[in-house]
Simulated assay, not measured.
Amino acid sequence: MKRTGSVAEVRQQVKEWKKQGLTVGLVPTMGYLHEGHKSLIDRAVKENDRVVVSIFVNPIQFAPNEDLESYPRDIEKDTELCTNAGASLIFNPTPEEMYPNGFSTNVVMNNLTKELCGKTRPTHFGGVCTVVSKLFNIVAPDRAYFGEKDAQQLAIIKRMVADLNFDIEIKGCPIVREADGLAKSSRNTYLSAEERQAALVLSKSIALGKKMVEDGERNAQTVIDAMKKCISAEPLAKIDYVSVVDALSITPIDEYKGYVLTAIAVYIGKTRLIDNFIVDIDTL
């Protein structure tokens, strides 16, 4: 497996693969890979002839007060995981390679970015859309793989691909959890032992809300209130949001009807974690 930070080298390699009639999958990441990322790579390897994993801590999706500098990085460990998973190429560019001097173009989405994480991180999804658009143009994959833990991001990427006519199939992959239920995240490494235990309140509240809906509760506020009560019982937890929205348009709804996303963001100490569940009411 090859690792490069060069846009030109990635493009040349992909062109050679496509001349051979090979399909290409892309797994965009910010590195510090875990089993959740591996599940994306595993699926990409299964469904494509060649797989590119991008590892890039994207500076333009971080606000000035966020954790850009402290975000965990371990490219050697990441390379080992990608190799063992069967990836073909790691694209690990520098910020200067992705955003050379004079860079002045951004991809901005209007509607789907206003709720959930977009409320408290107003510049975040502009950075995500810009870097993902660049990765799509650099790699030109047939398929790209994203985790469903970042459900709002996944909805935004799907909308962007449709709006901008990218000829790429977007694949959402299920949340991967620790044995005790906590959704896997690179930011879990920030947690102390006490905070790690407290963080279980996220998956507990998700399980509570999901069971309520599966048992027939359809009032969104009733579910929200119960989940907030569960989270607030943990002294180390501070709620950013608990929201129920249409899973495609990311607009708030009052009733569980159709395809629904219930999403939470919670601070455990200084660490902001997210989790969610999606239900299709018509299939329950």
Rank of each mutant, 00 (worst) to 15 (best):
K134V: 03
A63I: 01
L89A: 02
V139W: 03
F91M: 05
A85Y: 00
P122F: 07
V107M: 09
L112V: 09
K114N: 10
V128K: 10
N137Y: 07
T123P: 07
Q152I: 12
T113A: 13
N58C: 12
T130G: 01
N92R: 06
E148K: 15
D49P: 07
S70R: 15
P95G: 08
E69K: 05
D49R: 09
G102H: 04
R121D: 14
I55F: 10
Y145C: 06
A140I: 10
E97W: 06
F56Q: 06
A87F: 03
K77M: 13
E66R: 12
N84A: 15
C82Y: 10
K77A: 15
L81K: 14
D67V: 04
A144F: 08
D74N: 15
S70M: 12
P93G: 08
V53T: 00
P93I: 08
S70C: 04
I138F: 02
D150V: 10
V52R: 04
P122M: 09
A85P: 04
E148I: 02
N101E: 14
E69S: 05
V51F: 02
N110C: 09
E148L: 14
P122R: 05
R73A: 09
A144N: 11
T83F: 13
N92Y: 11
E66W: 11
V128N: 08
F62T: 01
T105C: 12
F91S: 06
V57N: 01
L81M: 15
N65A: 13
L112Y: 06
A144C: 12
D142S: 07
V52N: 04
F146H: 00
T83A: 14
T105W: 08
E69P: 06
I138W: 00
F56P: 13
V139K: 03
T130P: 05
V107Q: 00
R121N: 12
A63D: 00
M98G: 00
T83S: 14
P141A: 13
K114W: 08
A63L: 00
K77Q: 15
S88I: 03
N106F: 13
E80P: 05
G126Q: 13
E69I: 02
I75W: 12
A85D: 02
G147R: 09
S133P: 08
K114F: 07
N111L: 14
R73G: 11
S54N: 01
V52T: 07
C82A: 15
Y145H: 01
M109H: 05
Y99A: 05
T105Q: 03
L135S: 04
Y99P: 01
G118F: 05
E76Q: 15
Q61T: 12
E76H: 10
S104M: 07
I55D: 03
P59M: 07
N84P: 03
F62V: 01
V131K: 03
E148V: 06
P122D: 06
F62L: 04
Y145W: 02
H124L: 11
P59C: 09
I75H: 12
K149I: 04
R50N: 07
V52G: 04
I138N: 00
V57Q: 06
